[in-house]
Every structure is written in structure tokens, then in C-alpha cells.
Design a protein around this nucleic acid. Structure first.
Ligand code: MN
Ligand code: MN
Ligand code: MN
Ligand code: MN
Lengths: 228, 228
DNA sequence: CACGTATATTAGGCATTCCTAAACTTGAGA
DNA sequence: TCTCAAGTTTAGGAATGCCTAATATACGTG
């Protein structure tokens, strides 16, 4: 009803559900119970129950057996959490010596505990950055967000030179592996070889070649235009 | 049983109960249900129930109708929270431009969300301070804490000059009032007058006199030895 | 020592958030 | 069109953490 409703105090669970559903609805397509359950590491029945409650709260619309879709209120609450999460990550790297593989777990808890003023003080201390340490764009306070078009490293044409834009933040080991090879946002890579049948790609970074499996090459997103 | 038990994940509620009971047991004397309920703004039956659970968890000993007393495990968990709380307050003042009246509410939430490594990074950034912005001593990681003996401003002898050591942190308005008059830790005050029958005291700070009501003068703690 | 009040506990209930097992719906393929 | 597997929901239950109302205890006072 009240689209601009200020969700005075959503619980940690509710906030994480909204964030998950936001993440699973790139073009506003409804998110499935199964995918939400998988992302949050919960059972499908738990998700069914919560989705029902959130729809009663006006945070999402639910068509049984079809999926859940955020309302404007839900989307704005989700973006508020995404902003917090990414600014906290940036702050921890910039001011507390964290490495990019350790910040996600910390932010996942802190995002629910910080106040709005604290988030804005961190943003100011950082000079209002536009992306977090993984290259993910940071939504503005009004909920606007600039997603840059990007191509998975797995899909870059052979011979093409591209700039890495963002990397999936969730697996610390994967992040350490990538960082050790210069595969970080801003890094420039040239795709040298691609093996058929979903085989690995060979990339060149700062003159060094690395063979990267498909699964990994799918979570490294690159600028879709060549960067030279 | 396991005295050095690492409380792997106490809930926010449990952590706040332990902190409250620690605060209410200055010399290890048991804390009453009533006092715990008052400090946490909960009903006495809620406290009775939680105290029973915490004693089953080995975090405190409870003699029904008499009171609750922390075990070593409970005390160490409480001190861990106190360390977090006070370091967070110090960090917010030092690095994020917070004033001393705003940090308590923020720390009350953040203390449950930070990781041990983050707390230690904040401590290092601060140069391992010994007191927080309110003058409260910061326990070491091993749980040791140096409480300095102190006298309430309300009890300082007339004519005496003392240094302010610590101020109760809980009421932001009170903290602003005190700061505006120079009544902050490290501030030097001379007690000029005391009205009888629990009347106000007159103090001199940096050449200016202020009349301070008894209730207020009781939460301002001063060095028990003269400082000058 | 009995009484009454302050304090504490027990009884019973509700909201939240999770679970497993059972029942239901959907839709793709036989 | 029928079948059935995958996916979803409902049913039922547990833990946490809070509440109010009722009951029990402790202790100072007469
Ligand atoms: Mn989270
Ligand atoms: Mn990130
Ligand atoms: Mn707290
Ligand atoms: Mn403090």
C-alpha cells in the first residue's frame, strides 16, 4: 500500500530475503522458491512461509507455484541493504586493511547492525565510491544504481582484450586465486585461447598466461566493449 | 563445565544479558531479577526464564529467589562484549567523527555483529587505547580490566580539586549537557559548594562555576586522589 | 511469630524463524 | 491425454525470546 513505507525495523532474516530476491530478479522476473532457498541455504518450505509473510507485509508479490517479485517498497529496502553491504566492504578494505576475500562475510552481518548515519559517514570517508572491492556498483541513497553491461570472461571472443569489471564475491578461496593472477576489477586481460566443449580459456594478464576453467571464467565479468 | 568454552555463537539477547549481569555485579555479588529487568527494559518473568536457561548453559549460577552470578565462562563472555562495545565507541569517535553522546546506541548493536579480527583491527588502528570516550576502561583480550577507584562528583569534599575519570554513557542528552560544561574525562573540577539535604553541588571548571543536581553529580566519577 | 509487601517464579501464550514429512501443482514427455 | 518428476506448499513441530496473569517466596514490621 504505502510504497514509500519506511520499513522501520525489518529483521535480519527479512533483510537477507529481500536482498536475495533482488539479486535473483535481474529484470524484475519473479524469483523461484528453490533459487531463494539455495542462495540463502534454507529449506524450500522455510522460504514458502517467509514469502507468504513478506507478501502480506507488502514487500513482494507472490503468485503461488510461480514465484516472488519485489514491490517498490521491497525493492527499495533491498537496495538499501545492498548499499550498506557494498559500502561496508569498501570501508573495511580502505581503512581497516581487509583483503577483498574477507569483507563479504563481515559485511553480511554488519549490514544489519549499522545505522543510516553511520553508513553515510563511511560513504563520506570513502569519497562516495561508485563500486565496491569486487566491482559491484553501489546504489545511491535514493535507490538508483548504475549496472554496467558486462560479459563473462567465459564468453569473451578469442583475441579480444577486455577490462575486468566485477567478480562474484562469495567464495574467499576463489577470490584469493583470482587476485594472485591479477584477475581483479580494473585488470586488463587478453583472451588467448578457448578449448571447445566448454573447456578452459587461456588468458594473458600483464604478459603472463593463465588457464582458467569455465566455472571460474563465468563469474569474472568484463567490460563488453574492448578497452584497448 | 568447560570453563574456557568458546561460546561459538551466543545470541544478541544472551550477550546483552551477560553484559547486564556483569555490570550489576561489581564485586561478584549476585544480580537481582528486578535489576536485570530494569537495566534491559524487560519484564521480570522474561529475565527469570532467561536466567534459568543461562544457568543451564553454564554461563551463570542461579539461586532461585536470590540472584544470578556469572561463572568464569559467563564473565569472560561478558568481558568480551564490554571490550567490543568500548572499542567500537572509541573507533567511531576517533575515525568517523561521532560525538560521545551518539556512540553508545550504535555500539549496542554493532558489538554483536563484529568479528574478533575486526575488533582487533579497530584496536590496532586506535593504538590499543585503555579507556573509551566515556572514560570506561577497556578490558584486554584475556579479560583483564583495570578499574580505577573513583568517587562520584556528588561525594567529593568541598574545596577539593579532582579530575573527572568517567561518566555514565547511557543518556545522550545528559552527555551533551555535561560536555557543554567541560565535565568530560580528563576535565579538572573544583568542588566549591554543596547544599545540604541532597541539594546540588557547585563546581568550578576552567574558571566557570556550574550548579549540578545530585542525580547528575552521582554519575560523574572522579579520581579519588586529588590530581593537583 | 504472623502479616503484608516487594520480589521472583510459574503458567500460558504469541511472534519469529527455522526444520522434516506429506500433499499438492505444474508442465514436459510418452 | 496421461503420467510423473521437479518444484512448491501445507502440516506439524521445535527453539528463541518476549509478554501478562497468577502463584510462590522472603523478609521487615508490628
Ligand atoms: Mn546479511
Ligand atoms: Mn561485494
Ligand atoms: Mn547490545
Ligand atoms: Mn562507553
Amino acid at each position: 500500500m504505502n510504497v514509500t513505507a519506511h520499513p522501520d525495523s525489518l529483521t535480519r532474516s527479512v533483510e537477507d530475503y529481500l536482498k536475495a530476491i533482488y539479486r535473483l530478479s535481474p529484470e524484475g522476473r519473479p524469483a523461484s522458491t528453490r533459487d531463494i532457498a539455495h542462495l540463502l541455504e534454507l529449506s524450500p518450505p522455510s522460504v514458502s512461509g517467509m514469502v507468504k509473510r513478506l507478501s502480506e507485509l507488502g514487500l513482494l508479490e507472490h503468485i503461488p507455484y510461480r514465484g516472488a517479485q519485489l514491490t517498490e517498497a521491497g525493492r527499495s529496502a533491498a537496495l538499501r541493504m545492498v548499499r550498506r553491504h557494498r559500502l561496508i566492504e569498501a570501508y573495511l578494505v580502505e581503512f581497516l586493511g581487509y583483503s577483498w576475500d574477507a569483507v563479504h562475510a563481515e559485511a553480511e552481518r554488519l549490514e544489519h547492525a549499522v545505522s543510516d548515519p553511520l553508513v553515510e559517514r563511511m560513504a563520506a570517508a570513502l569519497g562516495h565510491p561508485s563500486v565496491d572491492p569486487h566491482g559491484d556498483p553501489i546504489p545511491a541513497t535514493d535507490g538508483s544504481i548504475h549496472e554496467l553491461a558486462s560479459t563473462a570472461l567465459a564468453d569473451v571472443a578469442t583475441g579480444r582484450t577486455v577490462e575486468i569489471r566485477r567478480v562474484d564475491e562469495r567464495d574467499p578461496e576463489r577470490l584469493r586465486y583470482l587476485a594472485a593472477r591479477g584477475l581483479v576489477p580494473g585488470g586488463v586481460v587478453t583472451l588467448r585461447d578457448r578449448q571447445p566443449f566448454g573447456g578452459p580459456v587461456t588468458v594473458e594478464v600483464a604478459g603472463v598466461r593463465h588457464v582458467i576453467g569455465t566455472e571460474l571464467a563465468r563469474v569474472v565479468l568484463c567490460g563488453s566493449e574492448e578497452t584497448q
